[in-house]
Design a binder for these strands. Sequence first.
DNA 1: GCCAACGTTGGC
DNA 2: GCCAACGTTGGC
Length: 139
Amino acid sequence: MAYWLMKSEPDVFSFTDLTNKPLEEWHSVRNYAARNNMKAMKKGDKAFFYHSNIGKEIVGIMTIVNEAHPDSTAEIVDGKIVWECVDVEADKPLPTPVTLAQIKADPFLQDMALIKLSRLSVSPVTAAEWDYICKLGGL
DNA sequence: GCCAACGTTGGC
DNA sequence: GCCAACGTTGGC
């Protein structure tokens, strides 16, 4: 099983919004690197839900429930939908959200794509980083 | 609201 | 295929 981190602006779609739905299509990603990461996801993989812009913290965990499929919000070019996305469902919130400031200040987390590639909205997380952040979050 | 980082576009 | 111009993301 692999681990990931996915960003959303909470005033557009927050972790609370996700918990109120049975599942959600992670649509509207328009970046090739992020899309490739989604295509690499397997059913059952886990992902952190990060609130960008507002909060700037990891607030919860979600599960990948459907692997990459055409993005229903993407425009059709030459009869094909060029963008893809996965479906996710809420797993559980972190009892204590882990902030970007904490991650930046922690020597163990310096290699995270969240810091090194700050504009990448879907990025991989190592098992070690995953466990470490879960502990910081009170799980 | 500003700006740095970075991806994309289009002229050459 | 290079690179300047431009647009977007996201932290501050």
